[in-house]
Simulated assay, not measured.
Amino acid sequence: MATLTPVSLALPDNKIPTKKTVRDIIGTFLTEEWPFVDPATLTMSYHASFANAHCPVERPKPATGTSTEALKVFIKFHIDPGGGLDIFQHLAPSRHEEALLCYEYGRSGLGAKVYGFFKTQDGTLGRIDEFLDARNMEPEDVEDAIIRADVAKGLAMFHALKTSLQKKTVGPYYEAIINGLKIYHKMDKLKELGKEGGVNVDNLIDYDLGGRLRKVVDKLESIGGKSGWCIHDIQFMNIMVKNCPKEGESKVVLIDFEFVMQNYRAFDIGGHFMQKMFKWFDEESKIANCRKYTEEEKRHFCEEYARQWNKVTGDSDSGDQVFLESEYGYLLAITFDIHNMLWYMCGKDDKDPLNLLGLNKLFDEFVDQYTRLELEDP
């Protein structure tokens, strides 16, 4: 259900819901059994970031008979209605549009079902989804050809998804991010934060990422790069690997659509290849201890992607074409992550050395790829 439903309760000042509050919210949408569950019997955990929080909730199995409603659900709370990153506000979906997209994606059989979209009396927006019996993808998972192919096919189907969201051209996104990158170019505050954190980021801050990104976009346009609904935040935490997939069913599910908008499909494909090197939520290092995607693995991915894209759209794209686009998409995705990290660094005075080392790794990857593709002026 993607219609916004008011619920007659409010979250506490700290925004952490009680078991009773959670039970009552779920019971608004799953009305046969959940309203009568003793809140004390619920098992739940609460995890928050700066903009959102999520809360898996499970009730006991009935003592007799078979349950008619889900025993476990996943609640997402939007703590910050704006979500930060103002430069994308006019492009990214609203919370209601995101819920609608998730609902349509779930109905397609590709993702989690959406049970309800709600607003509490204190103004908090949230969504109740099917709980997926799955784990977050690890970088090593894509070294398995079957999982790698399922990710490729999943992205192709998502990029070509028919949705009620309004399509916009890719131009406004690149105007927004290029202008955003200009804000941080040569910013002394960022250089000083790097020094305070013990990691020199001067080379990155002095590098004209925005100007070079413009060249990448022009090149991608010249080779006929195609667009679709891109996730943008394609880090591996946003790909779930099912624990017990059914026969013939995809092993993966895509999640987290806060930044879904039209972009070159190469953004997500190249971004997926790049993200294999990072573990952004690891407490010991943001750089994954594994090898990069090999060219053979990339080409296999692109062949699987092209086959699925053609099946859905009726096009006749080759794996070579998708691979060529992905080479430039690799750079598009890096600039998205660098911009967002600089935004956070500047706004939060962040000088965590692990974040800074990850930032420099992104920068090194950009420079190496940009040079390899011979985009640098002679």
Rank of each mutant, 00 (worst) to 15 (best):
L193V: 12
G211H: 11
I79V: 11
P353K: 08
D208M: 10
E69M: 02
G194S: 10
M237H: 15
P378E: 14
T43G: 04
Y305A: 06
E374Y: 12
S49L: 07
E32V: 01
K15E: 07
Y174K: 12
Y305T: 05
R307T: 06
W280Q: 00
S45N: 11
Q262H: 10
Y328E: 04
L101P: 04
I25V: 10
E58A: 15
T28V: 04
I146W: 01
Y370A: 08
D208P: 11
E374W: 06
D337H: 10
N14I: 00
D377F: 02
Y344N: 14
P35L: 04
P56M: 01
T313G: 08
D80E: 06
T371V: 07
F257S: 07
L101H: 01
G271T: 05
F88G: 07
E325I: 02
C244P: 03
Q235N: 13
W309P: 01
V199K: 11
A134M: 08
M341I: 11
I183A: 01
T169D: 13
P81G: 07
Q275P: 06
V252W: 00
G211Y: 09
D38L: 09
Y328H: 08
L42G: 04
A53G: 14
F158D: 01
K246I: 05
K351W: 07
D364S: 12
D13W: 02
F236P: 08
L209Y: 12
H159A: 04
N52G: 04
L209W: 09
R265C: 12
K20I: 02
Y173W: 05
G319I: 01
F278C: 06
Y46C: 01
I269T: 12
G126L: 00
I239V: 15
M345E: 08
R291E: 15
L220N: 07
V57C: 06
Q262D: 12
F29Q: 13
G329Q: 09
G248H: 10
L342D: 02
F29S: 14
Q321V: 05
I79M: 12
D206T: 07
T5V: 13
T68G: 03
V73Q: 03
G228H: 01
D38G: 08
I183P: 00
P39A: 09
Y46G: 01
D368F: 15
Q275A: 12
I177P: 01
V22W: 02
F336K: 15
G111Y: 00
D24S: 13
T169L: 05
K182N: 10
D122L: 01
D86L: 01
L342Q: 04
N52C: 09
R265V: 13
D233Q: 11
G248D: 11
H185P: 02
T64L: 15
F336H: 15
M341C: 08
R307Y: 05
E376K: 10
M137A: 14
